[in-house]
Lab assay of single mutants.
Amino acid sequence: KTYTFRVRIVDEETGEEKEIEVTAKSEEEAKKAAEELKKKYPNLKVELE
């Protein structure tokens, strides 16, 4: 079973919002993916929905 999570990304500089879908095998995995995004884009606000 896989879970699909919507991750909302807000670029703090431009105020631009993007939504991406993360497919993960567990909620834990999705959280890790969101953390990776935060590391990659430090000025983005990442929200897991």
Rank of each mutant, 00 (worst) to 15 (best):
Lys1Phe: 10
Lys1Ala: 10
Lys1Glu: 09
Lys1Leu: 10
Lys1Pro: 14
Thr2His: 10
Thr2Asn: 11
Thr2Val: 12
Thr2Gln: 10
Thr2Asp: 11
Thr2Trp: 14
Thr2Leu: 13
Tyr3Asn: 04
Tyr3Phe: 11
Tyr3Gly: 03
Tyr3Ile: 06
Tyr3Glu: 05
Tyr3Asp: 02
Tyr3Ser: 04
Tyr3His: 08
Thr4Ser: 09
Thr4Met: 06
Thr4Gly: 04
Thr4Gln: 05
Thr4Pro: 04
Thr4Lys: 10
Thr4Val: 13
Thr4Leu: 08
Thr4Arg: 10
Phe5Arg: 00
Phe5Lys: 01
Phe5Ser: 00
Phe5Trp: 12
Phe5Val: 10
Phe5Asp: 00
Phe5Tyr: 11
Arg6Pro: 02
Arg6Ile: 15
Arg6Cys: 10
Arg6His: 10
Arg6Met: 13
Arg6Ala: 05
Arg6Glu: 02
Arg6Phe: 13
Val7Asn: 00
Val7Arg: 00
Val7Cys: 04
Val7Asp: 00
Arg8Glu: 01
Arg8Ala: 04
Arg8Cys: 12
Ile9Arg: 00
Ile9Asp: 00
Ile9Val: 10
Ile9Ser: 00
Ile9Phe: 12
Ile9Met: 08
Val10Glu: 03
Val10Asn: 03
Val10Tyr: 14
Asp11Gln: 01
Asp11Leu: 04
Asp11Pro: 00
Asp11Arg: 01
Asp11Lys: 01
Asp11Phe: 03
Asp11Asn: 12
Asp11Tyr: 02
Asp11His: 03
Glu12Val: 12
Glu12Ile: 13
Glu12Ser: 09
Glu12Gly: 06
Glu12Asn: 08
Glu12Trp: 07
Glu12His: 09
Glu13Val: 13
Glu13Arg: 12
Glu13Ser: 12
Glu13Lys: 12
Glu13Pro: 01
Glu13Ala: 12
Thr14Asp: 02
Thr14Ser: 07
Thr14Tyr: 01
Thr14Met: 02
Thr14Gly: 02
Gly15Pro: 00
Gly15Asp: 02
Gly15Trp: 03
Gly15Thr: 01
Gly15Cys: 04
Gly15Leu: 03
Gly15Glu: 01
Gly15Ala: 02
Gly15Ile: 00
Gly15Ser: 02
Glu16Cys: 13
Glu16Phe: 10
Glu16Tyr: 09
Glu16Trp: 14
Glu16Lys: 05
Glu17Arg: 06
Glu17Ser: 13
Glu17Gln: 10
Glu17His: 08
Glu17Ile: 15
Glu17Asp: 04
Glu17Phe: 14
Glu17Leu: 11
Glu17Trp: 15
Lys18Arg: 14
Lys18Met: 14
Lys18Ile: 15
Lys18Glu: 08
Lys18His: 14
Lys18Phe: 15
Lys18Gly: 04
Lys18Thr: 14
Lys18Gln: 12
Lys18Tyr: 15
Glu19Ala: 08
Glu19Val: 15
Glu19Gly: 04
Glu19Cys: 15
Glu19Phe: 15
Glu19Ser: 13
Ile20Leu: 07
Ile20Met: 09
Ile20Val: 09
Ile20Thr: 02
Ile20Cys: 11
Ile20Pro: 00
Ile20Lys: 01
Glu21Lys: 08
Glu21Thr: 13
Glu21Ile: 15
Val22Ile: 15
Val22Leu: 12
Val22Asn: 00
Val22Pro: 00
Val22Met: 08
Val22Ala: 00
Thr23Val: 13
Thr23Arg: 09
Thr23Gly: 03
Thr23His: 14
Ala24Glu: 03
Ala24Val: 12
Ala24Asp: 01
Ala24Pro: 00
Ala24His: 03
Lys25Gln: 13
Lys25Ile: 12
Lys25Tyr: 14
Lys25Pro: 10
Lys25Ser: 14
Lys25Asp: 12
Lys25His: 13
Lys25Phe: 14
Ser26Ala: 01
Ser26Met: 00
Ser26Tyr: 02
Ser26His: 04
Ser26Arg: 01
Ser26Asp: 10
Ser26Phe: 02
Ser26Gly: 05
Ser26Thr: 13
Ser26Gln: 00
Ser26Val: 01
Glu27Leu: 15
Glu27His: 13
Glu27Pro: 12
Glu27Gly: 05
Glu27Trp: 15
Glu28Tyr: 09
Glu28Lys: 08
Glu28Asp: 10
Glu28Ser: 08
Glu29Ser: 04
Glu29Leu: 05
Glu29Pro: 00
Glu29Thr: 04
Glu29Arg: 02
Glu29Lys: 02
Ala30Trp: 08
Ala30Gly: 04
Ala30Gln: 02
Ala30Arg: 03
Ala30Leu: 14
Lys31Cys: 09
Lys31Asp: 04
Lys31Glu: 08
Lys31Leu: 14
Lys31Phe: 12
Lys31Pro: 01
Lys31Gly: 06
Lys32Gly: 06
Lys32Asp: 07
Lys32Pro: 00
Lys32Gln: 11
Lys32Glu: 11
Ala33Arg: 10
Ala33Pro: 00
Ala33Met: 15
Ala33Cys: 15
Ala33Asp: 02
Ala33Trp: 15
Ala33Ile: 15
Ala34Cys: 14
Ala34Asp: 00
Glu35Ile: 09
Glu35Gln: 11
Glu35Phe: 08
Glu35Arg: 06
Glu35Asp: 10
Glu35Ala: 10
Glu36Gln: 10
Glu36Phe: 09
Glu36Trp: 11
Glu36Tyr: 11
Leu37Asn: 01
Leu37Ile: 13
Leu37Met: 09
Leu37His: 02
Leu37Arg: 01
Leu37Lys: 01
Leu37Phe: 07
Leu37Cys: 06
Lys38Asn: 05
Lys38Tyr: 11
Lys38Cys: 11
Lys38Asp: 02
Lys38His: 06
Lys38Gly: 07
Lys38Ala: 12
Lys38Met: 14
Lys38Arg: 14
Lys39Trp: 08
Lys39Glu: 06
Lys39Ile: 09
Lys39His: 09
Lys39Leu: 11
Lys39Ser: 08
Lys39Tyr: 06
Lys39Phe: 08
Lys39Gln: 11
Lys39Gly: 06
Lys39Thr: 07
Lys39Ala: 10
Lys40Gln: 10
Lys40Trp: 07
Lys40Arg: 11
Lys40Thr: 06
Lys40Ala: 09
Lys40Leu: 12
Lys40Met: 13
Lys40Asn: 06
Tyr41Ala: 03
Tyr41Ser: 02
Tyr41Gln: 03
Tyr41Asn: 04
Pro42Ile: 03
Pro42Gly: 04
Pro42Asn: 06
Pro42Lys: 04
Pro42Ala: 04
Pro42Phe: 04
Asn43Met: 08
Asn43Thr: 09
Asn43Lys: 04
Asn43Ser: 08
Leu44Pro: 02
Leu44Asn: 05
Leu44Met: 13
Leu44Trp: 13
Lys45Met: 08
Lys45Arg: 13
Lys45Gly: 03
Lys45Gln: 08
Val46Asn: 03
Val46Cys: 10
Val46Glu: 03
Val46Asp: 03
Val46Ala: 04
Val46Ser: 04
Val46Pro: 03
Glu47Phe: 14
Glu47Lys: 04
Glu47His: 07
Glu47Thr: 14
Glu47Cys: 10
Glu47Val: 15
Glu47Ala: 06
Glu47Asn: 07
Leu48Met: 08
Leu48His: 06
Leu48Thr: 06
Leu48Gly: 06
Leu48Phe: 14
Leu48Glu: 05
Glu49Leu: 15
Glu49Asp: 12
Glu49Ala: 12
Glu49Arg: 02
Glu49Phe: 07
Glu49Pro: 10
Glu49Ile: 15
Glu49Met: 15
